[in-house]
Every structure is written in structure tokens, then in C-alpha cells.
């Protein structure tokens, strides 16, 4: 079985378990890296691949659940917990903390494979979402200041006339800005642009149905 471009990290203080899980993962075609302690894992320079972290709950340097909490602030691969004696509160805590699964040793091959696969899939999705977002952010950064002013008005659903009045410019000018925005953001339709704006968390500042227009009298005659 050829090696996939995927990575599995294993942190367990028991050398025998570490060794065996590593063996199993490799036999299943995954690249695997094992660590005896959480600190070793942190220190390791991880390759930019979809990955999964198999984490023993009982670690010598830190409790696995604590470690999960520490990791939550950063970007990290999804976690699959393994434990000698799993208890319900711990597993609930782990899952709530974003863990993919909470497996009890000895871990069966199917469970392990399913968990690892789910974790790596989730990582892949997260990674592509992160990649897309950064591309969109790059496109947004390419807009001119005026275009960045026009964008929220357009995605809020204002008519060109309304948006032009809002900014005190002519409708024609606004249409030019709008067309440039569509091009720069590579939006195929207004709906597409709206979806992109959502991803970029651009706030909807105006509603067509809100009373804001009455409050803001048009400057055009």
C-alpha cells in the first residue's frame, strides 16, 4: 500500500503502545510520528499535510485533556483520544473540546481507522476552508478604498441608486465600482459575492427594508 500524503502523530508515554500503534498506522499506509510526551510533539516541526493527532489521556507531563485545551487557541490537527480507562465525563469533555473520537485501549483496527480517517478528512476540509479564506482575503485586499466602501452596500442588497445616493456618487460611477468588485473578487453573480462577503465576515450595514433610507435623505434631486 502506497503512502498517502497524510500524517498521523501519536503521543503516548508507553513505548510498547506507541510502537504498536505506529506499526499499525504504517501497515495501513499512514505516515506516523510518535512522541513520548506532549512537549516533544509541540517541539516537532510538522509537515504541511492533512494530519491527525492520536493523544493518550494519561501523559507523563500533562493530562491529555489539558493539552487539548492548550492547543485549542492555535491551528492544530483534529484529535483522537485513546485512554486506558475511559470515563464518560472525560469523553464528553474531549468531544466538547472538539475531539473527533475518544477510544478505549485496546483500540480495534476498524475504530482506529475510522477515527483517523474522519480526523484527517476534517483536517482536510478545515485546511481547504482556511486556504479559500486566505485567497478571498487576498482578493479583498486588492480592492480600492472606495470599492471596499461600495462592497457592503451592494451585498446588503441596496439598489444601485440607493447605494449611489448613500455614498453621494452617481449611479453610473457606482455601477463601474460594482463591476470592478465583481471582477476582483471573482464573483460570478451577486449571490456569489454575497457568499464571499459572508465568508469574509463583511457586515451587512444596510437593509433595503430598514428605515435607514428615510433617515438618510437622498442628495440627488
Amino acid at each position: 500500500m502506497s503512502q498517502r500524503k497524510e500524517m498521523v502523530f501519536v503521543v503516548d508515554d508507553d513505548a510498547r503502545v506507541r510502537e504498536a500503534i505506529n506499526e499499525l498506522l504504517e501497515s495501513l499506509g499512514w505516515q506516523s510520528e510518535t512522541f513520548a510526551a506532549a512537549a516533544d510533539y509541540v517541539a516537532y516541526a510538522k509537515p504541511d499535510l492533512p494530519a491527525c493527532l492520536i493523544l493518550d489521556v494519561e501523559l507523563p507531563d500533562i493530562n491529555g485533556l489539558e493539552f487539548q485545551k492548550q492547543l485549542s487557541d492555535d491551528v492544530h490537527p483534529p484529535i483522537v483520544f485513546i485512554t486506558g480507562h475511559g470515563d464518560i465525563p472525560s469523553s464528553v469533555r474531549a468531544i466538547q473540546g472538539g475531539a473527533v473520537d475518544f477510544l478505549t485501549k485496546p483500540v480495534g483496527e476498524n475504530d482506529l481507522v475510522a477515527a483517523v480517517r474522519a480526523a484527517i478528512d476534517r483536517d482536510r476540509i478545515q485546511r481547504s476552508a482556511r486556504a479559500e479564506l486566505s485567497e478571498l482575503a487576498r482578493r479583498l485586499a486588492a480592492l480600492t478604498p472606495r470599492e471596499r466602501e461600495v462592497l457592503p452596500l451592494v451585498v446588503s442588497g441596496l439598489l444601485n441608486k440607493q447605494a449611489a445616493a448613500e455614498l453621494g456618487i452617481s449611479e453610473i460611477t457606482l455601477e463601474i465600482h460594482r463591476s470592478k468588485i465583481m471582477h476582483k473578487m471573482r464573483a460570478e453573480s451577486l449571490a456569489d459575492l454575497v457568499r464571499i462577503a459572508e465568508k469574509l465576515r463583511i457586515p451587512i450595514t444596510h437593509s433595503r427594508r430598514s428605515g435607514s433610507l428615510q433617515e438618510c435623505p437622498t442628495r440627488s434631486p
Partner: peptide, 22 residues
């Protein structure tokens, strides 16, 4: 005891799966 025994058991199970895979 479960913990003491479980560690080698966990290793055994993983190894046997791996062995089967190989």
C-alpha cells in the same frame, strides 16, 4: 490492574492488526 494489563494488551491488539495488515 486494567491499566497495568491494558498497556501491553493495547500494544498486542495494535500489533496483531498490524501483523495481519503486513
Amino acid at each position: 490492574i486494567a491499566h497495568e494489563v491494558n498497556q501491553p494488551l493495547a500494544a498486542i491488539v495494535a500489533n496483531s492488526h498490524a501483523c495481519h495488515r503486513w
